[in-house]
């Protein structure tokens, strides 16, 4: 009897954590920072934070898909910089709309290349994308000669600084649209089921007639597309595309968000909503520490600790639910 009861208790704990853990952490963070720094809880700071969170959140949506198939992409920070400098440098020739479209197209293509390397050559994703991380970054440097590309096109800048009804930052709307599209793909289309099947058991998926390679290429391409959108948001926020500064540590923030959001690193089902809430947590933590004037080196240490903490928490959840990762 005792054993049964303890198992039930464990399950309850696991379910509670799975449903309410993240929002609770988020609320806790907002409360703590509101008390410690008076500038935190202003509507201006909170709204602009939601805007910044979309920069992490949009890519986190794509990364959720990739991690669900049991892969990683650590090249997205460099990809963000490369497509940002490429797209923004095209603006004088093809206009703002063309620049935005070309950025998204190039990013999707880079994601596609990552997918081809991972599937057709069977190179583990993290090491392919580790190589790409350096290739993309150095191409961004070489293309711009390490000079930032300044952006004055109003259409492009609207992606980062535009406000709906004069209040809500446009990136938030963008993130919501991305989320809805991803949600429909994942929960309402066969592709979503295929992605989950590939992540849960690639062999079984292949035997039941799913083209595993194509699904993997698709998720990498999707991630590229989302990174392209995030790149426009980010460069518009900063007013320039900087080949060296854009996307530093970006892959780290995004993967932390996805893992903290409850997606298992070993693949299988994932949580898009969890990734978004976790992206908020990661962004608010950074902003709060900045407002408290925490030394930026401490912030570096903290991001690393949060990542390990997030993975361990995930392990704990799966252990409590008796699923084992």
């Amino acid at each position: 009897m005792d054993e049964l009861r303890s198992r039930q208790l464990k399950q309850k704990l696991g379910l509670f954590w799975g449903n309410f853990g993240l929002p609770l952490i988020f609320i806790l963070i907002v409360i703590v920072f509101s008390i410690t720094s008076p500038n935190f809880a202003t509507s201006y700071n909170l709204l602009s934070n939601f805007g910044f969170a979309s920069y992490v959140g949009i890519a986190a949506i794509g990364m959720t898909f990739v991690i669900m198939t049991g892969n990683f992409d650590i090249s997205i920070g460099s990809m963000l910089a490369l497509v940002g400098v490429l797209g923004s440098s095209f603006i004088p020739k093809i206009g703002g709309v063309g620049g935005v479209l070309s950025t998204v197209a190039i990013a999707s293509f880079l994601g596609f290349i990552n997918g081809i390397f991972v599937t057709k050559l069977r190179i583990p994703a993290f090491i392919t994308t580790l190589g790409m991380l350096y290739v993309f970054r150095s191409l961004a440097y070489i293309y711009t000669n390490n000079v930032p590309v300044y952006i004055s096109d109003r259409f492009w800048l609207y992606f980062g600084n535009g406000k709906l009804f004069g209040v809500i930052p446009f990136p938030i709307l963008l993130m919501v649209i991305c989320y809805l599209v991803a949600y429909l793909i994942l929960r309402k289309s066969p592709v979503g089921r295929y992605i989950i099947a590939v992540g849960t058991n690639a062999k079984a998926a292949a035997l039941s007639g799913i083209n595993v390679d194509n699904i993997k290429i698709l998720v990498f391409t999707l991630l590229g597309l989302f990174v392209g959108i995030a790149s426009i948001v980010n460069s518009a926020n900063l007013g320039a595309a900087n080949p060296g500064l854009m996307g530093q540590n970006y892959e780290f923030q995004v993967i932390t968000a996805v893992v903290l959001g409850g997606t298992a690193l070993s693949g299988g089902n994932g949580s898009l909503g969890g990734s978004l809430v976790a992206a908020l947590i990661v962004t608010f933590l950074g902003n709060g520490m900045g407002l408290m004037q925490v030394n930026s080196y401490w912030q570096l240490v903290a991001t690393g600790l949060v990542m390990i903490f997030a993975v361990s928490l995930n392990k704990l959840k799966f252990y409590l639910l008796g699923q084992g990762e």
Binding site: F252, L300, V301, A302, G304, L305, I308
Partner: peptide
């Protein structure tokens, strides 16, 4: 993560 922590 350790790389970030140690660098920090």
């Amino acid at each position: 993560s350790m790389a970030t922590i140690v660098r920090g």
